Simulated assay, not measured.
Amino acid sequence: MEASSSTALYPQRRCKNIYLVRHAQGIHNVEGDKDHSAYKSPALVDAHITPLGWSQVDYLREHVTECGLAKKIELVIVSPLMRTMQTAVGVFGGESCTDGESASPLMVEGAGHSGRQAISSFNCPPFLAVEACRERLGVHPCDKRSSITKYRTLFPAIDFSLIENDEDVLWEPNVREAIDTVAARGMKFLDWLWTREENEIAIVTHSSFLDFTLNMYSKECHPTIAEDMRKRFANCELRSMVLVDRRSVLVLLQ
């Protein structure tokens, strides 16, 4: 009898667990839901999250703490935009800073119109800002980042060392990044992620970046799985996935 199976086994050491998070509700989401043309408003440049967004952050923080995920995360990668960094430090960061604490805060008090106390970097994973997981670039001012100089004052414990330019040289006012280009950028980002030594990684990013990237990966999946992967992320939604190097899988199967 010829052996066959519809399932697959991979050694855990050949996989990474990644936790994809879309940022909490931003002011641009509110205005865009009322009138889509509002996304082009200069008033929404580098949009920050809303009071409802902060409530979403608090809810997700409670969830990752109660389920034990917060203690497993080895690295938090974040898109360098206000709303994603606020979401990331609110969900995976430490508690409120205390008097006499020596560690740099992940977020200073009131950063980005938050009305929040400073968030501590004590006893939490490192945070790394990466431009490759930014939102679709161009035209919409909400997707244009501020200077790294400004961000370093607001988020002192986030590592911005991988970002080459202080000002945003990627966003263009009159050219919208093509969907295929975003997807290719996302897949290249995940290939880079595989080279990291950490095995439990949270990525706090954006809806279009997630939609276009996961749509490309879903093309190789069974239709039921593809449908699941193509579902649009809600604000502050977290999904767990396993990242596998297919080259290693081929070696294992030979």
Rank of each mutant, 00 (worst) to 15 (best):
F155S: 10
V76M: 12
E172G: 00
L170F: 03
S120Q: 05
D168I: 03
W171I: 02
P105V: 07
E95I: 00
P173A: 14
N123T: 02
C124F: 05
D159S: 12
E167T: 15
E177C: 04
I73M: 09
N123E: 15
E177S: 05
L162I: 00
E95P: 02
P156N: 12
F155A: 11
N174R: 12
A132T: 12
R176H: 05
P156W: 14
L170A: 05
G94Y: 09
L154G: 03
S146C: 07
L128Q: 15
M85P: 05
S79Q: 11
M85D: 05
T98E: 09
L170C: 02
Q86N: 11
D168G: 01
P156I: 08
E109T: 14
P126A: 08
G112E: 06
V78C: 13
D99W: 07
G112T: 08
M107E: 06
A129T: 11
H140C: 01
F155V: 08
R152I: 04
F155G: 11
Q86M: 04
L106M: 12
F92K: 13
E177Q: 09
L106A: 08
A129N: 11
A103R: 14
T153N: 15
E74L: 02
R136M: 04
T149H: 05
S147A: 12
L128Y: 15
E164F: 00
F122C: 13
V76E: 13
E95N: 09
V89D: 10
E109Y: 03
H140R: 04
T153E: 15
P125K: 13
N123I: 00
D159K: 10
N174E: 15
R83G: 01
M85N: 06
I148S: 06
I148F: 03
R152L: 05
V175T: 14
P156T: 09
A157T: 09
M82E: 03
K71I: 00
